[in-house]
Design a protein around this nucleic acid. Structure first.
Lengths: 239, 239
DNA sequence: CGGTCACCGTGACAACGGTCACAGCGCTCG
DNA sequence: CGAGCGCTGTGACCGTTGTCACGGTGACCG
């Protein structure tokens, strides 16, 4: 089945039903049925744009598989990455609830399964099902949390090295895997993208990563980084 | 009547009942009665600490009058201001709803009337009154909005001048008063505090404000600033 | 009325990092 | 298999800005 723009519609694929639970867990059957009846589950190719900043929010987007880049742009074309959304994350929630325009652009980094619920349908669910409303509050609270953490991470860091250290520590905490050699994490990001996340230039990211590697703090192979000396990174954050 | 720590308890003062409406507007009478029965309305002196980062959230705080500084600190003592809360703002909401530790410190900048609702009482209200839950979602969505705006304002600005320009424009939008001479706004902040908000040093704030004054873009008298050439500021933001 | 304190203003200087320019390298695709 | 392209790595340069140091001014207070 084909949606507009040649997108494949994904009919209740396993990924979607599993991951959506983070938004709709513990819903009574009637609400769940409503959700399923109204949702659009589609699979987007790499580089697809879900929404752009300034636009009235179309609805909420649940990432079922893949990764979605959330970023803002300044007038001179610079981009600043707010978040790399992963399966289970919900996008557009704050815009839909507050009724304001979207404050960011969303673009898939990989082919991704996304289920969408139109604004009107979502608000109806909110109004009629208390659990949905409470769950939404919790998700929004988490989003606030993350946004504040990111703001203070950037605001409090005085050197680029410190920003990078914070970013690496954050990545480890989210997706790290502890091995005997250290904490291993796959960063599927280019140096340029890391630069956009931590607010510095690509060259600086390259230089700093090289520096850390020389110092033996991290080891790099392909897109996986092994943090061998975690304390050295946290030490950077302090000083 | 005296609360612990020698604080005055404010019994249904005009300010509180009026301003709280932004959280509890359109509540049915029963919910309102519950809110009023459970709330603690106290007046804090200047410099009082409502909560500190890392602490489990005690409850939600509604600012009825005065101003409250929300800030984070880094290990080396640097502080970064997230928000200056004004009457009608609600603090601690995200921490209470998500159940995580507070991510910031809150400190009054002036003698302030604050009404507090303990976490358990607030959550009970949330669970039993759908309107309260929806209203909370909306407030959280606005908070997300503001956090994102601030994050991108800092992340996208490359020069200190641009950050200051953004800050001034934001201030005008929030509290500005249009006159024939320009937009007048009272900034009850020291240069050091502005520096902490936009992530730069006090000296730079002083220098940039002096520069803008020389260029005729703004006029300064006491703590009020008149933006005479708004376009010059927005122009800074772009380039 | 002199002392103290908080805040503003300013100069000198070093360094961090953005920018430009270019080279190497691995991938894809015709 | 060579061309093209995107990503990484590196050197040179210089502007912005943080830091230190100090002086000035107004408010408050004993």
């Amino acid at each position: 089945m084909k949606a507009p723009y040649g997108l494949d519609i994904c009919e209740n694929c396993q990924a979607c039903t599993v991951r959506e639970q983070r938004l709709i867990c513990n819903l009574p059957d009637r609400a769940l049925a409503e959700f399923n009846a109204a949702k659009f589950a589609t699979v987007y190719p790499k580089g697809a744009v879900l929404f752009v900043e300034g636009q009235q929010p179309m609805g909420v987007f649940v990432v079922c598989s893949g990764r979605v880049k959330l970023y803002g742009t300044s007038a001179d074309g610079k981009t600043y990455v707010l978040q790399i959304a992963e399966p289970g994350d919900v996008l557009g929630l704050s815009a839909v609830v507050s009724g304001r325009a979207c404050e960011a652009n969303a673009e898939t980094l990989e082919p991704s399964h996304i289920t969408m619920l139109k604004r009107a349908d979502f608000l109806r669910l909110l109004a009629t099902h208390a659990e949905m409303s409470f769950r939404t509050s919790q998700l929004l609270a988490l989003t606030c949390h993350r946004a504040h953490r990111q703001a203070s991470a950037i605001g409090l860091a005085q050197s680029a090295r410190e920003k990078l250290a914070r970013f690496l520590l954050d990545s480890c905490e989210r997706a790290g895997e502890t091995t005997d050699a250290g904490i291993r994490v796959r960063l599927l990001l280019t140096h340029a993208e890391i630069g956009e996340i931590i607010g510095t230039s690509r060259e600086t990211v390259t230089r700093l990563l090289g520096q850390l590697r020389k110092e033996g703090v991290i080891a790099v192979r392909r897109s996986t980084i092994v943090v061998r000396d975690r304390d050295a990174l946290t030490g950077n954050v302090h000083s």
